[in-house]
Design a protein around this nucleic acid. Structure first.
Length: 458
RNA sequence: GGCGACAUCGCCAAGUGGUAAGGCAAAGGUCUGCAAAAUCUUUAUCCCCGGUUCGAAUCCGGGUGUCGCCUCCA
């Protein structure tokens, strides 16, 4: 299998450190607000990465952090007039809620920054002792000049960074590109004790500490969205490799951005979409389809028309299962034909090529098509098996079930019987009225050679 | 100023040297009392110019356009 590695800017053959085992770390949310639909794209993509590896029988150790102490939480705490710890709790709960609603699986470890203060302080101390860090007025900075490889991930040179003229002026820093490891607390701010006085850790340090803790000094895959390449991941590498003298991660994967009508999503442009708001109008699978229909590294443009199309596409996938009455065969063991195995291989080939989910989805549609035309339940089984690798069809039983109590169902069947009589009498007006009225309630009738069938049309 | 990405049917989107996947939408046929569903069929030569090649959407050069990063950012 091949994975595009940001470090080399090439697709590389993927070789895990330990055969059969994948250690991956993905940067999670900073919990100062509800997360937006762009975050959702990244989280959902890495959910698929994890699912795919597991499908291919790898043991996956997947770590995702929660940044629960940061300048942004402090700002939000002032805005909402509640303590930082409550801000964190509120948005962590919301995060879990939204993730569940998106049908994203939990990582193996979901770690919070504030639980690893001791380890962070130890790392900063180690860096100070090794001469990579210096203290000034209660702040501790990492000295980028001490690390000759600084900039290797983002392809930046220190001179270029200086020339950028947008680097903030900070008289405490030896080099404007130096970044904060420990920040002195101002009065009233959350603080922890440290050898440099009361303060809080910088953002870049937590990921190094938590990845080390759960995955070791070098692990397989480090992921995030493209904007994290610089400075966040660059600064993680600088610290981790200064301390251990070993590469932090072998493969760096970065997801592309989500734009709104061609423009970057930002609060100032007022085109900010929270995941929970999108979920009010579109279900998780429509959103998932929309994300996965484009390659993860490409920018994707978000608009409602495309979400509607995606919703329709997913419905059509489901119809292949309903046509086959999949629910009745859900516990059956599949027995794939040669042709079905061939389709499965096509799916795997697509995913092996740097997670070409768009192509994988095309295979899904081919399978759905044959499931419908051949009425072969094995095609339906294959559709579910592979669809689940992309995260579709979770809680399938529930989704296929009609969720009606017995009386309601009896009433529908009663109406269908009346309508059949009207049809026999060629009373088309009444027959159509029953059909139309039921349709208004979201119940769709269709006349088949085996009699009239009904289903929810949602 | 530095670095990078992208431009394929009405819309979304694969394909990166061998003659254009798939989805949505649309049109027509079958089926139906009419529908719905299902099913079959139809719809592009790949931003422009030049080059390399037997052969290019795919490689090279030059345009044009769009976007991103360099500051917190998924």
């Amino acid at each position: 299998m091949k994975i595009y590695n940001t470090m080399s800017r090439k697709k590389e053959k993927f070789v895990p450190i330990e055969p059969g085992k994948i250690k991956m770390y993905v940067c999670g949310p900073t919990v100062y607000n509800y997360f937006h639909i762009g975050n959702a794209r990244t989280f959902m993509f890495f959910d698929v990465v994890r699912r795919y590896f597991e499908y291919r029988n790898f043991e996956v150790i997947f770590v995702k952090n929660i940044t629960d102490i940061d300048d942004k939480l402090i700002e939000q705490s002032i805005t909402e007039k509640i303590p930082v710890s409550e801000i964190a709790k509120k948005y962590i709960d919301a995060y879990y809620e939204d993730i569940r609603a998106l049908e994203i699986e939990k990582p193996t470890y979901q770690s919070k920054a504030t639980e690893y203060l001791d380890e962070m302080i130890a790392l900063i101390k180690e860096l100070e002792e090794k001469g990579f860090a210096y203290e000034k007025n209660g702040d501790v900075y990492f000295s980028v000049e001490k690390n000759k490889n600084y900039g290797k991930l983002s392809g930046r040179k220190l001179e270029d960074l200086k020339a950028g003229a947008r680097v903030e002026e900070n008289p405490n820093k030896k080099n404007p590109a130096d970044f904060t490891l420990w920040k002195k607390a101002k009065p009233g701010e959350p603080k922890w004790k440290s050898p440099w006085g009361d303060g809080r850790p910088g953002w870049h340090t937590e990921c190094v500490v938590m990845s080390r803790k759960f995955l070791g000094e070098t692990f397989d895959i480090h992921g995030g969205a493209i904007d994290l390449i610089f400075p966040h991941h660059e600064n993680e590498i600088a610290q981790a490799e200064a301390a251990s003298n070993k590469p932090l991660a072998n493969y760096w994967m970065h997801g592309g951005f989500l734009n709104i009508s061609g423009e970057k999503m930002s609060k100032s442009l007022d085109n900010f979409f929270l995941t929970r708001d999108v979920l009010k109008k579109y279900n998780a699978e429509a959103i998932r389809f929309f994300f996965l229909s484009k390659h993860y590294r490409s920018p994707i443009d978000f608009n409602e028309d495309i979400l509607k199309e995606s919703n329709q596409a997913v419905k059509n996938l489901y119809s292949a299962l309903k046509e086959n009455d999949y629910l009745s065969f859900i516990d059956e063991k599949p027995d794939y034909s040669e042709n079905q195995n061939e389709l499965k291989d096509q799916f795997i080939t697509a995913m092996d090529d740097d997670f070409n989910t768009a192509k994988a989805i095309a295979v899904l549609f081919e399978i759905a098509k044959s499931a419908r035309s051949s009425k072969d339940i094995n095609s339906a089984h294959l559709l579910v098996e592979l669809g689940r690798v992309l995260g579709f069809f979770s809680n399938l039983e529930e989704k296929l079930k009609t969720n009606l109590d017995d009386i309601s169902e009896e009433l529908i069947l009663l109406l269908i019987r009346y309508r059949s009589q009207f049809k026999k009498d060629k009373n088309w007006e009444m027959a159509d009225k029953i059909r139309d009225d039921l349709k208004k309630m979201g119940i769709e009738l269709k006349d088949t050679p085996d009699g009239t069938k009904w289903k929810f049309d949602k």
